[in-house]
Design a protein around this nucleic acid. Structure first.
Length: 227
DNA sequence: AACCAGGAGACAT
DNA sequence: ATGTCTCATGGT
């Protein structure tokens, strides 16, 4: 497995090209997006973020100061708006209490990860999104797509717990040089691969990721250009 | 008209 | 430790 991880990356990159992730300008905006995109389509997240921007609420202070009902209303398009309003507030509260992002950025990765996970609404994937894309830390993000793809490639079972898979991927890519850039692009490519192929050609000869893909859960041999 | 989307927490077992 | 339920909008 270890050696094949990088080869699969090369195929994905050759197939889809650079993805320029994370979509978001500031560090804070990336963190907001990471929470709002939980089990939600990114297009819907963009609307919610646009709402925050027009209301001048793209700062921790503004979000904490906003009335809960009003904040939830801004988040409506991204779904689970009541839940996400609380989570976003908790995240902002934490950022402020810890002395701001400048200061948090100086923390070492393990500490930062542990503290992020202690914030209400920040689970392992969201924490790693933030670590990788907002703080440029070499952390490999595991999501449902990652499980499906590598299960279908026959490289994992798919039911391993989060930390097990993260360790597996990080160790499998341990000898690569620019890990932040690599992990950044890798995760983005996995998501891109999931979105693109099966939508455009439901019966593509490649490994498909959509749940409804005709290839189903068969462990597909990767043939051709895409993994 | 179901099904799904860049999950996490609460709660029961 | 491991399952199950809930949260909710918008696109296909």
């Amino acid at each position: 497995m270890p050696r094949s991880l990088y080869r699969i990356y090369r195929r994905l990159y050759a197939c889809h090209g650079p993805q320029h992730w994370w979509p978001g300008d500031t560090r804070f905006e990336i963190m907001v997006g990471a929470v709002l995109t939980q089990n939600a389509a990114w297009t819907n997240v963009e609307r919610a973020i646009a709402n925050l921007r027009t209301r001048g609420a793209l700062t921790p202070e503004a979000i904490v100061a906003a009335h809960p009902r009003r904040l939830a209303a801004w988040l409506r398009p991204s779904g689970y708006f009541n839940v996400k309003a609380r989570r976003l507030r908790a995240l902002c509260r934490w950022i402020i209490d810890e002395g701001g992002l400048r200061r948090l950025a100086r923390r070492d990765t393990e500490t930062l990860r542990r503290d992020l996970l202690a914030v209400h609404g920040i689970g392992p994937e969201t924490a790693d999104d933030i670590l990788l894309y907002a703080f440029d830390r070499p952390v490999f993000v595991i999501d449902a797509y990652t499980r499906r793809l590598f299960r279908r490639l026959g490289l994992i079972d798919g039911n391993e717990d989060y930390e097990t898979l993260r360790a597996l991927f990080e160790r499998g890519l341990a000898r690569c040089r620019d890990k932040v850039a690599l992990f950044n692009e890798y995760h983005a490519l996995i998501v891109r691969h999931a979105k693109e192929i099966c939508r455009v050609r439901p019966r593509c000869g490649h490994c498909c990721l959509a749940r409804s893909c005709p290839v189903g859960d068969q462990r597909t041999e990767d043939r051709g250009q895409c993994a």
